[in-house]
Design a protein around this nucleic acid. Structure first.
Length: 170
DNA sequence: CCCTGATTCGC
DNA sequence: GCGAATCAGG
């Protein structure tokens, strides 16, 4: 792409009009990458983009770390007395390797939901009535038979004798 | 899989 | 400088 002044002007215009990079590319007969690349180079105002690549892993960066300081090997026995610098004025606290404050761990779980209301009394029948998901869906809620989740009526339906059920099975 | 924009990096 | 490749989110 020959970025003539006209081309750049057109790019700027289309960009300012809010066209997508691909659309601009289509109109100018170039790829959207060319558009966005050029726009980026021209420092055109970035468009709303949800993308954030702060954490893009970039293995290719050896980053030759430098040694903190060359450990000077003092010729034995005499450590030169430190110059009585910082005696007056600003304390050189800046060089301390600022230890970040302890990060508080995730707050402990307050309390596991102990238990559902212990039903010492009778439970209600949980036989579904109506179409689940519809407003009028409910459960039977009659008094369930002890040890069973349904009332006697529905328990009779729920617990069918194996013999009778045979026919239903595929 | 389509769209989007951003960044990188070999050319 | 260019832009395809790649990344990343919708």
């Amino acid at each position: 792409m020959d970025w003539t002044a006209e081309a750049i002007e057109r790019l700027r215009a289309l960009w300012a009009e809010g066209h997508s990079t691909a659309e601009i590319g289509r109109r100018m007969g170039i790829s959207k990458n060319a558009v966005v690349g050029k726009a980026h180079r021209l420092n055109l105002p970035a468009r709303p983009s949800p993308i954030r690549r702060e954490a893009v892993e970039r293995p290719a960066q050896p980053a030759p770390m430098r040694l903190p300081r060359p450990v000077a090997v003092a010729s034995r026995s005499t450590l030169p007395a430190p110059p009585a610098s910082q005696a007056a004025g600003a304390p050189q606290a800046a060089n301390q390797p600022q230890v970040p404050p302890p990060v508080p761990m995730a707050p402990p779980q307050p309390a596991v939901v102990r238990s559902f209301p212990r039903f010492g009394s009778a439970r209600s029948c949980c036989w579904p009535i109506g179409e689940p998901g519809t407003p009028d869906f409910r459960f039977c809620s009659a008094e369930a038979t002890p040890g069973k989740p349904y009332c006697t009526q529905h328990a009779a339906v729920a617990y069918v004798k194996a013999r009778d059920r045979r026919e239903d099975a595929a």
